[in-house]
Each structure stands twice: as structure tokens, then as C-alpha cells.
Simulated scan of single mutants.
Amino acid sequence: MNGDVVLDHGIWFRGVESGSAASAVRRAAERLGAQLELGDRPVADLAIITAELTSNLVKHAQEGMVLLRPVRRGGRAGVELIAVDHGPGMADLTVSSRDGHSTTGTLGIGLGAIVRQASWFDGYSLPQRGTVLAVQVWSGPAPEPSWAGALTRPMTGEQVSGDGYAVRVVEGRQQVLVCDGLGHGPLAAAASEAAVGAFRDAPNGSPGAVVRHLHRMMSHTRGAALAVAELDPAGGLLRYAGLGNIAAMIVVEGARRRGLVSLPGIAGHQNPVVREYDYPFQVGATLVMHSDGVVDRWDLADYPGLVGRAPLVVAATLLRDAGIRRDDACVLVARAEP
């Protein structure tokens, strides 16, 4: 896959199981760091991190993949790497990330080097289930971790994903979007890109009003299933409006789930009924939204401690284990914070 230009949705490197594949990821990461003008030192750190991440995949992982993409916040840009595998996993990621610790008789410096060089790092691992590691490199200190994290993956054989997502804060409203363009390939991606663009430019309003706006702005596309949620932990509420087969659940303490209601319809076509629903949503609750490229039989209770990790790590873990290879897939996770 061409690593010369990395769009904001990123590039997946699949099957990172050889030295040549690992080198391709490292070169692409260095190019992206240079394109974003991170500076010599951050790019050097990025090269070390990428080499260690991919070396771990080559040595230990099964079905290892890496997502490389830019990350933007507050007018700044950095580079993000997400490594995902189905390998042997680790019982204690914190212990394994200390220099000198090893499970295979090696020097055990890999994860320690990643933690030291990264501007931001988080991860999750379970024995016999695999590992997810998320790393960011910035020029200067990393911004505060985001309250929401998401990623998409195109179906096997496609270069672009018809699924998309976006996050915004407008006049204090914390809103998220997940969308699934009809079909696959470039036309489905164009529909999702239209939804994302319209969402980012939408007037301040509740999720129902935003969904109606997206519907009007997408009439030139093949259409999409989509849903918009607004987190209001101060008010103890989550407001939600959805059209089509976007799944959404609120996960509370003990990993109990509550499903949210999306109505039938296609944004951009016909004249769908849009209805907004309110749900209890206290501080500490987690919102999970995903397209139908992710089966909904996942249960966070099967992942001890995962709900406390960064939203991006939660999303990547669910995508790894519940994503369908024969369909585009998207997972978004957002957390109610004080």
C-alpha cells in the first residue's frame, strides 16, 4: 500500500509479519512526520517507536496490523500509530513496558523504549487474546487526551472505507457522528465524507436537528446510515438521533449495556422520520457506537480493565475482535468526564 501520502483517516498496514513489512511502516511514519513538520527530534523518536512496535509484531504477534495517521487538535498536528494483534498478549502491560522485562528471553527493552519516546501512550493486553498499543508523537507536549476515540477499517480488498466518524464541540456541546455510506468503495466513502463535512459545519443544535441538516446536505450522494449523539454528563443525559443500522450502546459500571434507538431510513434519500431520544448518562459512563461492519455481540465484561483505558484503545480492541472483514467497519467510543 502506498505510504507516500497519508490522509487523515490513515493507512492500515496489514500482515506486519516480516522485516520488509516493518520497514515499510517505519518509512511511511517518517515521511508523515516530515510532512507534518514535526522536527528532527520527534521524527527520530517516531522512527524508534515504529521500529519497536513493528518488531514486536514480527516476533510475537499473529495477524499483526498497524494504523498510521495524522492526529490534529487545537491547531496542532502529530502522528498516531495503533498496533493491533491476536498474539500471546501480556498479563500486565505496565510491568511489560518497563525496561529489562521480557517474556521471551530477549532484552525486553521494546515497550520501555516506546513509552519513553512517545508523547502519549496507552494500551491493553490479555493473555492469549492479543494486544492493542496506541502511540502519539507531537512536537512539544502532547495535548490532553481526547474524551472520544474512533477508527475505521476498509473491507478486505478495498483501499477506502465507506464508514466514517467525526467529533466536535460547539458552544459546549460534545457531539459525535458515526456514518456508513451505502455499499462499498469510493462512492460509499464519498457519502460518508459528505456527512462528516456537513457535521463539522452544521449549526449549533441538538442531535435531531443535526441529523436533519445532514439529510438535507447529502441529497447529492448515494446516502448513508448515520447517528449523532450528544454527551451532557453535567445534566446526566445523552441525546441521540439515528437513521439506519448504526448500533449504539451506553456502558455503565459492571459493563452493563443499554441499546439506543435508531429509526429506519437513509440520510440523503426519501423523507425519513428523525426522532431524538434522551438517555441517562452519568459521569463514568461510556458510549460505544459502530457500523454494521462490527457485530454487536461484544461484551466489555469479557475485557477486565478495558473500560478504564483511553477511548481510542477501547475502540481499537472492539474493532479487532468484532470487526467483519467482508465489510467496512467503524467503532467510536466516548466517555462522560467531569
Rank of each mutant, 00 (worst) to 15 (best):
M217S: 14
I250S: 05
D302K: 09
I109S: 06
L32H: 04
D232E: 13
G3L: 10
D201A: 15
R41H: 05
F121E: 03
D299Y: 07
A21P: 07
S55T: 07
A34S: 08
S219V: 15
G254K: 02
V313N: 00
I246C: 07
I266V: 15
S102M: 08
K59Q: 11
F199R: 06
R27D: 15
P264N: 14
G308N: 12
R72L: 08
L107S: 11
R256C: 09
I114W: 13
A334D: 11
G157D: 08
A34Y: 03
M65H: 12
G39A: 09
H184M: 03
A29W: 02
A44I: 05
M65I: 07
L319S: 06
D328C: 10
G78S: 07
Q270D: 14
D321T: 01
H101S: 04
I114F: 14
F121M: 03
P311R: 04
S146F: 01
I246P: 11
V313I: 01
L300D: 04
D321Y: 05
N56M: 08
A234P: 00
A316P: 00
P143Q: 00
A241R: 14
Q175P: 07
G3R: 03
A229M: 09
S206H: 14
L318N: 02
R297Q: 10
A34L: 12
K59F: 10
T106Q: 09
S20I: 06
E337H: 13
G323H: 12
A227Q: 11
Q159I: 01
E276H: 12
H213R: 07
E144K: 08
A188W: 06
R69I: 02
V79P: 04
R98E: 12
N245W: 00
V333A: 06
T317M: 06
L32E: 13
A47M: 00
P186W: 12
R129Q: 12
D296S: 15
S219E: 08
A248Q: 05
Y165P: 01
E253L: 11
E52D: 08
A301Q: 05
A148C: 15
R168E: 01
A248Y: 13
V228L: 03
A247R: 15
G164V: 12
L231I: 11
E30F: 04
S119P: 12
S55N: 10
A22Q: 09
A148G: 12
G181N: 09
G15T: 04
V288S: 05
P338N: 14
E276C: 13
A166T: 06
G197H: 03
R309S: 08
P264F: 13
G89R: 09
S161P: 14
A285S: 15
R275P: 09
V170K: 11
E193V: 06
L260F: 07
P70Y: 02
A91S: 14
G323C: 08
V261F: 10
G157W: 03
Q270P: 05
V135M: 02
W12N: 04
G223F: 00
A24V: 05
Q282D: 14
D299W: 11
A22G: 13
L231C: 08
L7P: 11
V160N: 11
A315G: 08
H86C: 05
